[in-house]
């Protein structure tokens, strides 16, 4: 695997857009050509060579290309946009829209990720070792319903912000920390698992898919109805031991084929109220009133 290392030449004070710096664009080019790829610094057109110190080598094929962003990277946005192969590593924080519309390959962020991480992603793998801001794997504002992430996997080892997986239509998101409000809002398909707590209202307006929450959930939207207590759940073929409260919904959007909300029984004593509904019907109740 050939590695290309990019170090900012100066501290960026405005957003820098690097949507062209992806393995698909770099592999097979000479280093000189790579230095001439255009990037934006604020509203100014620049070349890669003007903004970054570039070292390392260029691979023949995108799949063999690795790109590493080093030093202060938090203002760099749109890293790995539409990449389809290879690997990008960000050793610091990533700005907004990292992995936007990603089609394959791997994106690793060692620091924190900005909002809209993996938005509209189709395939591939994203791993964040720090926290991620809101709208992970969601769609952009104003677009059609259910046009968020449609495949691939996002793993966040820290916490995530609000509305993760909004309008998700496939793929999986795993948050090992806590998540903000409204995860899986308007979700149509796919899976979300939050190992920590959720600030509230998971799955509002969902019409399909699955959200598993192992920590505490502050509140559940009233448009979900209680279905059963499940012993275990499944997240991307992996069995997660329960028990879980299973809620179905969102009734406001679709009453026929609802989405699933699996919420840990252990950490949510305030949901115990629902347990009375799983009673067996006693045979004598059936006898005529």
């Amino acid at each position: 695997m050939a590695t290309l290392i990019l170090k900012p030449k100066h501290e960026f004070t405005v957003p820098v857009e690097v949507e062209k710096i992806i393995p698909d664009n770099i592999a097979g080019k000479s280093l000189d050509e790579v230095l001439k790829i255009r990037v934006y610094e604020g509203n100014r057109r620049r070349t890669l060579g003007e903004l970054f110190e570039v070292s390392g080598e260029v691979a023949e094929k995108p799949a063999e290309q690795e790109i590493i962003f080093q030093r202060n990277t938090c203002r760099i946005r749109r890293i790995g946009e539409e990449m389809s192969a290879g690997k990008i590593i960000i050793e610091g924080d990533a700005g907004p829209l990292a992995g936007f519309k990603m089609k394959g390959g791997t994106l690793i962020i060692k620091g924190n990720a900005g909002p809209w991480l993996g938005a509209k992603m189709k395939k591939g793998f994203i791993e964040v070792f720090g926290d991620a801001e809101g709208f992970v794997g969601s769609k952009l504002r104003g677009e059609e319903l259910y046009s968020g992430m449609s495949g691939g996997m996002i793993v966040i080892h820290g916490n995530a912000g609000r509305e993760i997986g909004a309008h998700m239509a496939g793929g999986a998101i795993l948050v090992e920390g806590n998540a903000g409000i409204l995860p899986g809002m308007h979700m149509a398909k796919g899976e979300i698992m939050i190992k920590g707590n959720c600030a509230g209202w998971p799955g509002t307006h969902m019409i399909g898919g699955k959200i598993i929450i192992l920590g505490k959930v502050e509140s559940i939207a009233p448009s979900f109805y209680f279905e059963a207590v499940k012993k275990k759940a499944k997240f991307v073929k992996e069995k997660i031991p329960g028990p879980f409260y299973l809620f179905l919904g969102d009734v406001l959007d679709n009453i026929a084929i609802p989405g699933k909300l699996l919420i840990s029984v252990k950490n949510n004593p305030h949901l115990k109220y629902y347990e009375q509904f799983v009673e067996e019907v006693k045979d004598e109740w059936v006898e005529i009133v």
């Binding site: 109805y225 279905e227 179905l248 009734v251 009453i255 026929a256 609802p258 005529i288 009133v289």
Partner: peptide
Amino acid sequence: EKFVPPEKTPDKRPGVLIQVFQKSYPE
């Protein structure tokens, strides 16, 4: 399901028991 004689209904009138089944609670 069944006809219910008047003595077994709350308002002491003849009755009939019906059942309705659906896949989901809201439906």
